[in-house]
Design a protein around this nucleic acid. Structure first.
Lengths: 140, 140
DNA sequence: TAGACAGCTTACGTTAACGTTAACTTTTGA
DNA sequence: TCAAAAGTTAACGTTAACGTAAGCTGTCTA
């Protein structure tokens, strides 16, 4: 009863646009829009329909992740564009490295800021709890 | 030579709109816009000019921080609105607590996602370095 | 084999978050 | 004191990131 997974006819590595849309809970329009913006490049079938590889899917995931912490599509393009650099020249590589360091620094800053907000909210919670207690201790 | 700081005539707790704009590197229009959206409520002078208290300033800071991790102004309004709840009723307090818990969970999730991205970028960096090394080890 | 349904392109519509301009008033510094 | 700098309201403009609708084609299934 434990056959290797093989449910549909999809070659395991190809996704339709609607499959991805459902998986990530976005519209097909959104996915096509990202393509318009040259952020993702699916192949086409004979009938001109888009087919997304596992790699395309990963890229889409990255885009959405970027969005979730407030990067604009343009910034995301830069970030993921970085992962596509041609490794022809050493210089290119070094530039990519440097760029990556900046990004890393930014991300760590964001993490720290979020932790700050977390603290803000936590102390606020404490504040509320105290008030609640005093309400119950000395009612009316 | 170490007199207590006292440079201008500002009562140490009042800020002009342009002072805040400069401090946070945003436009005065932006600050007024937040007021339009009922996110901040400065007092007025006799001449009808806005004066911002230390508290207003903190709030502005919060708004901007929220923006930096991708919250919309509306979401930010909810978050900071929470810190303004009237503590009239126990029920209100409990609601605020619950709401805060959700927000905290969200924020922690964001932190985790960011750490994920950090890892992605880090391993990518390693990848690049390796390539760079092999370039230098076996040149041409 | 005919619907029904998924997908495609094109194009116009919408909303959030300000930018910009105009026309006017208040504040400030030499 | 008086002109420049800073502030005010009102209104229209702009851009990113999609939503929506139309008109057509390709694909699946009973």
């Amino acid at each position: 009863m434990d056959k290797p997974d093989q449910e549909k006819k999809e070659p395991e590595d190809a996704f339709t646009i609607s499959a991805l849309a459902e998986e990530f809970d976005i519209s097909t329009r959104t996915i096509r829009f990202y393509e318009e913006k040259n952020m993702i490049f699916p192949q086409r079938t004979d009938g001109n329909q888009r087919i997304y590889s596992r790699r395309d899917r990963a890229r889409l995931k990255l885009i959405l992740r970027g969005k979730r912490f407030g990067y604009s599509l343009e910034e995301i393009s830069e970030i993921i564009g970085m992962t596509e650099v041609d490794f022809d020249e050493e210089n290119q590589i070094k530039k990519a490295l440097k760029f990556g360091k900046r990004r890393l620094a930014e991300i760590r800053e964001r993490i720290n800021e979020l932790k700050l907000l977390e603290q803000d909210l936590l102390s606020f919670q404490e504040n509320i709890k105290t008030r609640l207690d005093s309400l119950n201790t000395s009612p009316k």
